[in-house]
């Protein structure tokens, strides 16, 4: 009975969708989905899935601590994730050491986040929003910031696209060719920190993977051409935000679940579908 009371179809969902706060949510969601799509391919190519997950957790104390010092959640997120990104970036190549260090900091940061949350005697919904995201809680004043982040991301990516791709896929050769592999790696981590900060507001610390990695992973099932992967992962993200918000408006529940579910369904379909260009490599094939 209780569940049915909560999950109730709202016949006026079209009106709800047209309302200003829904429009803010939709625009914010689209900006974040595009940003995530732009960086998602590089996250996969560079094998930075864990780093992006970790950055979100490192942002957690930033977000809860922001309330403690009286600034916005986004500011707290950006400060913590950027510092975390620099630290992970500077840890450099040794993948194993880096993962251990990152994981250790991740755990510590999450603990710190819990401490800050209780010190600030935050109401639980704020903490829930940080952990699980809530598009509907994004103030319209933040749209400009999101648009600014996205613009920075687009401009920087356009400038460094090829060297970054080269350095991500083929670091030793890129290095020999004079590409600043380490510098590009740190630049990438800072961009990733900005995107993670945005994405946390949409899907939260715990669901970040769904927006940052899964759309690109789904797109990669169909194409391996960098431009197209980026296009399709952005498209998948935008579609998921739109579908998620619409369902949320229909039954008046927080959108995160529906956004993540839409991404999940698209990913399932992509995985189940025949893979582009899959060809059996003949055993002992003539090379």
């Amino acid at each position: 009975m209780d569940i049915i009371a909560v999950v109730k179809f709202q016949s006026n969902w079209m009106e709800i969708l047209a309302s200003p706060f829904m429009r803010t949510a939709l625009i914010a969601g689209i900006l974040v989905a595009i940003a995530s799509g732009l960086i998602g391919y590089f996250v996969i190519v560079r094998g930075s899935m864990f780093a992006s997950h970790a950055l979100a957790h490192i942002g957690f104390p930033g977000a809860t601590g922001a309330a403690l010092v009286g600034t916005s959640v986004l500011t707290g997120l950006v400060v913590f994730t950027v510092v975390g990104a620099l630290a992970i970036g500077l840890l450099g190549k040794k993948a194993n050491d880096r993962e251990i260090a990152t994981g250790t900091v991740l755990a510590f940061a999450t603990g710190l986040g819990v401490l800050f949350a209780s010190l600030a005697s935050e109401n639980t919904s704020t903490v829930t929003n940080i952990l699980f995201g809530n598009l509907l809680a994004i103030p319209s004043s933040q749209l400009v910031v999101f648009a600014g982040f996205l613009a920075v991301l687009i401009v920087v990516l356009l400038v460094i696209f090829r060297p970054l791709l080269f350095a991500s896929i083929d670091p030793p050769v890129a290095e020999a060719k004079g590409v600043p592999v380490k510098g590009l790696g740190i630049t990438f981590m800072i961009l990733l920190a900005l995107v993670v900060s945005m994405a946390v507001t949409v899907v939260g610390v715990l669901l970040i993977f769904a927006l940052l990695v899964t759309p690109a992973a789904a797109a990669l099932r169909f194409t391996a051409r960098p431009g197209w992967v980026i296009f399709w992962s952005s498209a998948i993200g935008v579609a998921s935000v739109a579908v998620g918000l619409t369902i949320a408006a229909m039954i008046n529940l927080p959108p995160s679940f529906f956004i993540v579910s839409t991404v999940f369904v698209i990913w399932l379909v992509a995985v189940a579908t025949r893979r582009e260009g899959r060809v059996q490599v003949p055993v002992g094939g003539h090379g």
């Binding site: 460094i160 090829r162 896929i169 890129a174 260009g277």
Partner: peptide, 24 residues
């Protein structure tokens, strides 16, 4: 072991020519 699932062989070869170019 470096080259993986996320790029076509041809594009990898192309990067040998264009991978050091900045800008659009």
């Amino acid at each position: 072991s470096i080259a993986g699932d996320s790029i076509r062989a041809r594009d990898l070869v192309l990067l040998g020519l264009t991978g050091t170019q900045y800008g659009l």
